[in-house]
């Protein structure tokens, strides 16, 4: 079924898979995600869609190999298939429903942090295709961990890069770079879309609030079915409980209770750590040929 057409290593531990998935490629819009099960014993893992091509019938996912499930996904090679890919799930980004006039009235800045840079790409690309220019900040630990910079450059009006160690672009956090763009370089934006680690999104929300711009974040909550059935992805938005899978994954960053969201992400962490230890033990004695043991 879901055959892998292309695989690339984007950075250490970050993998890109382009998958044959006709129906999803046909319906996907920016902001949506898929649920991937690597094999018949796998977990249902939610991953944001990094690109889609209706003509080719393919979608692209980007995975950071961290736990057992993401490692299993990362290990899949061209010619192999994923057991299941379900989607597109979640609501598309709000701007996909806007009129051209409304789109033109906005000034967008996107922030992608780490592996979260990948799902920013289809959003900026969509706007670019609709004649809307948007600036983009990509944040990474270092130059080596930077992903999607070339693709993004082709669709962004201005691309800014920040690295934690200063090995490329701005030396510091994405929030500091945003602040500098607005306060020192005279840039003005009314909408910031941030996708990345929960902690990054929390601080982008705080910064944008101070800078007086709208903030949209894409939450990566724990999920099982992804269709609203289980409620594992509950998140507190503006004092109300929402389901990330059906009400999101994008929410108003100023309304999200990030401390609760961060805490809820740890729900299965001890179990995951144990599972990963067992997985590694199982792998011992064999030199991993795709570099997962580096």
């Amino acid at each position: 079924m879901f055959e892998i057409i292309e695989k690339r290593v984007l950075a250490e531990g970050i993998y890109l898979h382009r998958i044959k998935a006709e129906r999803i490629a046909h319906s996907a819009l920016p902001g949506q995600f898929v649920i991937v099960r690597a094999d018949d014993h796998g977990e249902r893992t939610p991953l944001t869609i990094a690109d889609y091509d209706a003509k080719e019938g393919t979608i692209t996912i980007v995975t950071q190999a961290m736990g057992v499930s993401t490692r299993k996904i990362a290990a899949k090679e061209v010619g192999e298939s994923f057991a299941d890919v379900a989607g597109p799930l979640g609501r598309p980004s709000d701007f996909t429903a806007m009129s051209q006039q409304e789109l033109e009235s906005h000034k967008f800045i996107f922030i992608g942090g780490g592996v979260g840079t990948a799902p920013v790409y289809p959003q900026v690309k969509w706007l670019h295709e609709h004649g809307i220019s948007a600036d983009v900040i990509i944040g990474a630990k270092s130059k080596q961990m930077l992903i999607f910079a070339e693709q993004m450059r082709a669709v962004a009006a201005n691309l800014y890069i920040s690295t934690d160690d200063g090995s490329e672009g701005f030396h510091g956090m994405v929030t500091a770079l945003l602040e500098e763009l607005v306060t020192k370089q005279g840039k003005s934006y009314d909408t910031c879309v941030a996708i990345g680690p929960m902690i990054m999104m929390k601080f982008v929300a705080l910064t944008t609030k101070r800078l007086g711009m709208r903030c949209i974040v894409s939450l990566n909550a724990i999920m099982v079915d992804g269709t609203g059935m289980c409620g594992a992805c509950r998140v507190n938005v503006g004092g109300k409980t929402k389901f990330t899978c059906v009400d999101g994954p994008e929410f108003d960053g100023h309304e999200v209770d990030f401390d609760e969201a961060l805490r809820r992400q740890t729900m299965y962490r001890s179990k995951e750590a144990r599972a990963l230890a067992e997985f590694r033990e199982h792998e011992e004695g064999h030199r991993c040929n795709i570099g997962l043991d580096r």
């Binding site: 129906r23 999803i24 319906s27 949506q32 299941d84 890919v85 379900a86 989607g87 597109p88 799930l89 269709t227």
Partner: peptide, 10 residues
């Protein structure tokens, strides 16, 4: 046909 969410996939 599995993995088809009506309202999303089709």
């Amino acid at each position: 046909e599995t993995n088809v969410i009506v309202g999303r996939t089709v």
